[in-house]
Amino acid sequence: MSTPPSDDAEDRATSLRAGFRAGVPYAAVGFVLSMSFGIIARDTGFTAVAAIVMSAVIFAGSAQFAAVGILASGGTAGAAVAAAALMNSRFLPMGIAIGPSLPGRAPLRAVQGQAVVDASWAMSNRGDGTFDRWFLFGSTAPQYVTWISGTTFGALGGDLLGDTSRLGLDAIYPTFFLALLISEVKDRTTFVIAAAGGLVALGLVPVTPAGVPVLAASLVALWGLRRERRAR
């Protein structure tokens, strides 16, 4: 496979720095999200150490919230893991999309794929079907740091905040995703794709387990095949 021509040391550093800067606002929001995760995990019976370890090794917000939610409602470990897997299933199409932009043998590409989180994936997308992997690494780094520090803060100091269910923390996630979505909707076509993806997901909510609606929405992107054919 060919190495992209722009992958020399200087461009790497530039991409890393640009990614880092772009990742900082999402990292700030991630701090508050993971803080609420730490609080909820403690309420569910996690020790502070368990909550922090979970954030450090899984580093996937929606999956962590889903798994803890299942345990809180009396579910088994198997059910919690299944819910987390469904929530994370969107990383499958994301990983397939970014694969050709990651160099090296299969195990090395699989390791680099661990750096994929929603914000970094979306922002490192060059829009032409390729991704800037150093931008991805740069923007994931601050998000990882605040994800763990936020969890630590919530798990150890959450009691100071009182009843967090009334704080409005559930408005954070959609706003976070909305910011990424707005930067992706560049023209009429991407707007229609976004609207269709949203409608597919909303339509599946009552009939499929959580996580499936988002995965299914990625199929809307197959519309890209048709447009490409027409253009030729």
Binding site: N125, D128, G129, L180, F191, I193, G197, A201, A221, G224
Partner: peptide, 11 residues
């Protein structure tokens, strides 16, 4: 290129 708008809108 269309995956991001579709997935993010669903989220």
């Amino acid at each position: 290129a269309f995956m991001a708008p579709a997935l993010l809108a669903a989220l």
